[in-house]
């Protein structure tokens, strides 16, 4: 298992380079939206390691096709030059009746399926490579429909999951989606995400995918319990931290992840 870190803002470059030089990461994942005015050669030279691409704001399910064509034509030179190990995007609801949601919402999987399928096929064609799609950190009961949705989507489009293990833990904690429901998806993809979560301010407490803290024990247990199914040739696991960018804290989590994939399995506290 290769361990990576998400590179989202240019001012974190020195930290990312230190992680690379100290052997804490094997690759880095670019939030490529934020670098579309940076020459691809400059990115390749500064990072000097394998990369993955994560697209945050294509809004490919909702965007019109002219916009997607234009965005793809901006992305392709980066794909050609940096040769990312994967290109990933989000299955989520970015707006309601034309008004932007700042906290993204979960789609209604059965109702949205046909539209998502068509847009995935189009977006993959434009990008010239298969997509890896991230699961939403479900808060409400719609999360129960997600595993079957992604299964069908993979069969119909070839798009596999960028499986976010901590998002699955959020969905389990919030509405009881069994962690084992995702095992076929874990088997089917080599690309994974993980990050810290936090709890809502108000009660009843909800688990929120905040990327602002260290990994929770249940998330590490999940990886540990199924590590032989996560790990496979070419596998990547990106640690996401977008807030509270404390270098020592991030380094601790990167070491924890490296330990998970090189130690013997430990007793697991999870019952799901």
């Amino acid at each position: 298992m290769d361990i990576g870190f998400n590179f989202t803002l240019g001012n974190t470059l020195p930290m990312v380079q230190r992680f690379r030089d100290e052997g804490l990461i094997d690759y880095c994942e670019l939030l490529i939206d934020n670098f579309l005015q940076v020459p691809p050669h400059d990115l390749a030279e500064a990072l000097d390691c394998p990369v993955g691409f994560h697209i945050m704001f294509s809004r490919f399910i909702e965007a019109d096709r002219a916009q997607l064509r234009d965005l793809a034509s901006q992305l392709r030179p980066y794909i050609e030059q940096l040769k990312p190990r994967y290109v990933s995007d989000h299955v989520a609801c970015f707006s309601h009746q034309g008004r932007q949601l700042y906290h993204l919402a979960e789609i209604d999987y059965p109702t949205a399926y046909a539209q998502v399928r068509e847009q995935v096929l189009f977006w993959q064609e434009q990008l010239g490579m298969p997509l890896y799609l991230e699961n939403y950190p479900s808060i409400l009961d719609g999360g129960h429909d997600a595993p079957a949705f992604f299964q069908q989507l993979a069969e119909d489009t070839g798009a596999r999951m960028l499986f976010d293990a901590s998002n699955a833990v959020c969905a389990w904690r919030n509405c009881g989606v069994p962690l084992t429901d995702w095992l076929p998806h874990i088997d089917a993809t080599p690309h994974f995400h993980v990050g810290g979560y936090n709890v809502s301010v108000l009660e009843p407490r909800l688990i929120l995918d905040t990327h602002d803290s260290e990994l929770a024990d249940d998330t590490l247990d999940y990886l540990r319990q199924w590590r032989t199914r996560f790990d496979k040739p070419g596998a990547t696991l990106t640690y996401e931290r977008d807030n509270n960018l404390d270098e020592a804290s991030i380094a601790r989590d990167l070491r924890r992840l490296r330990a998970v994939f090189c130690e013997e399995p430990a007793p697991c506290a999870l019952t799901a």
């Binding site: 609801c93 919402a105 209604d108 409400l140 719609g142 129960h144």
Partner: peptide, 17 residues
Amino acid sequence: MCADRLIDQDLLPALLA
């Protein structure tokens, strides 16, 4: 499955209001 099924899409108008 949770009782009284509620999904994000049910709440969309309220997420901005």
